[in-house]
């Protein structure tokens, strides 16, 4: 059998596969809420790891569970960037412009808030997920999204406003 280009990337990824697969999938599934999308992104994550290791962009020892979850995080952000709902989100934000400055100090029902977050998409959902679900500092959120820190802070302000409106609607549906 001919050796495939990038075959050397296979071994380090296959070596951590058993341990890393449930971690990567477990990271993705609750964040995208869909088995289909979580499987696609899991596959994308591992195949990207094989390509990176095969191209020599990182040593075999660099293929760790933590690194793979980091790759999964990027693939998730890419996935939301490809969804087309940012335009709708931006229209909603125009209405909320005055509210954006108010501190949000009410106690948050986490379950309702996660459901509200799932109704956002695009860069807003990505930014809020990275900043709050993952607990990343703003500078890391910016790096993951490929934006400046300033642009990311602006995005987070607008995203919080969109989330607050979505949260209130979500709460009304439950009531």
């Amino acid at each position: 059998m001919e050796t495939q280009p990038g075959a050397s990337g296979t071994e380090p990824v296959a070596a951590v596969y058993r341990q890393a697969l449930p971690q990567v999938y477990g990271y993705l599934l609750p964040r995208c809420g869909s088995t289909v999308v979580a499987e696609d992104l899991t596959a994308e994550t591992f195949m990207a790891a094989v390509a990176a290791a095969g191209a020599g962009r990182l040593p075999a020892a660099g293929v760790t569970v933590a690194w793979l979850v980091g790759v999964a995080r990027h693939k998730l952000a890419d996935h939301w960037r490809r969804t087309a709902r940012e335009e709708r989100g931006m229209a909603a934000v125009a209405v909320l412009a005055e509210e954006a400055g108010d501190p949000w100090d009410e106690h948050l029902d986490a379950q309702v808030a996660h459901a509200a977050l799932a109704r956002l998409a695009g860069p807003q959902r990505a930014a809020l997920t990275l900043r709050y679900l993952d607990g990343l500092p703003v500078a890391e959120v910016a790096a993951c999204l490929g934006r400046s820190v300033h642009a990311t802070e602006t995005l987070l302000v607008r995203a919080r406003a969109a989330l607050r409106r979505s949260y209130r609607e979500e709460g009304d549906l439950d009531a």
Partner: peptide, 30 residues
Amino acid sequence: PDSLDALRLPVVPVEPRPEFAAALLRRITG
């Protein structure tokens, strides 16, 4: 304090479907 910190979601391992896991491993090993 940021109320949205309540959204924090630690990574909990979840096993995917065995058919998916096996198919992906086949892809990885070429």
